[in-house]
Nucleic acid binder design. Structure first.
Lengths: 107, 107
DNA sequence: TTTTAATATTGCAATATTACGATAAACAAA
DNA sequence: TTTGTTTATCGTAATATTGCAATATTAAAA
């Protein structure tokens, strides 16, 4: 095996898991943090900041983009990336609502 | 390759990524949701609810426990699991603070 | 003690992820 | 058109994850 049984779970569960999974790597957390700090920046700037080769960074950017966490705008031969707040808001609200519904613990 | 370069990132980045990663699977999201709904319950109840075999569920529970998202208390020969709010609060607050710091988008 | 019940662990196959060199693609500049 | 710059894609090796059958472990019950 090795393939997740996504069809056995609800759309919402799969959606939240996909967003969380995209953020489940320190390089992608670092990218998000850098985009927050600089507000927006070129792909090349991110490559300079991270301890990873350019193709690896490009791959991480693609995953964040697929998950709807960032978006990129082509400017000439460069690409300007920035945060797409929508899905970050979704997962933030999701966790907040889970915590609100969680009262006492048995253990 | 295939191994994440954790030593090149900050402790905070690695920590947030680890929590997000643990939540990056629909089965683990479903487990968390079920624990919220029932407040606390036995491992066996979770196995009944999920479309996965007992060893697979046990493995997912272990990952959630390692990430500090749930905790389990042994009661006789059964184990009662419940949410450990601490790390869920951490990631919830983390995303909230990221969103607060994120103003306008370039693209 | 033997049996039963509830979880955890082991071992393994299938698949996914991570990382990067090489290369391609797209565009600007000369 | 040629060259340089920027980013994406391809191919591939190393490693991690997912899932489950078989089995071990632990403790209650008979």
């Amino acid at each position: 095996m090795g393939a997740t049984k996504t069809d056995h779970f609800t759309d919402k569960q799969n959606e939240m898991a996909a967003i969380a999974k995209a953020l489940g790597h320190p390089a992608r957390i670092a990218i998000v943090e850098h985009l927050i700090k600089t507000n927006a920046c070129y792909c090349g700037d991110i490559v300079e900041v991270l301890p990873l080769a350019q193709p690896t960074v490009s791959q991480h950017l693609k995953e964040l983009k697929n998950a709807g966490i960032i978006k990129g705008e082509i400017e000439g031969n460069a690409v300007c990336y920035c945060i797409d707040k929508k899905n970050l808001s979704k997962i933030s609200n999701y966790f907040a609502s889970i915590l609100n519904r969680s009262f006492k613990s048995c253990c």
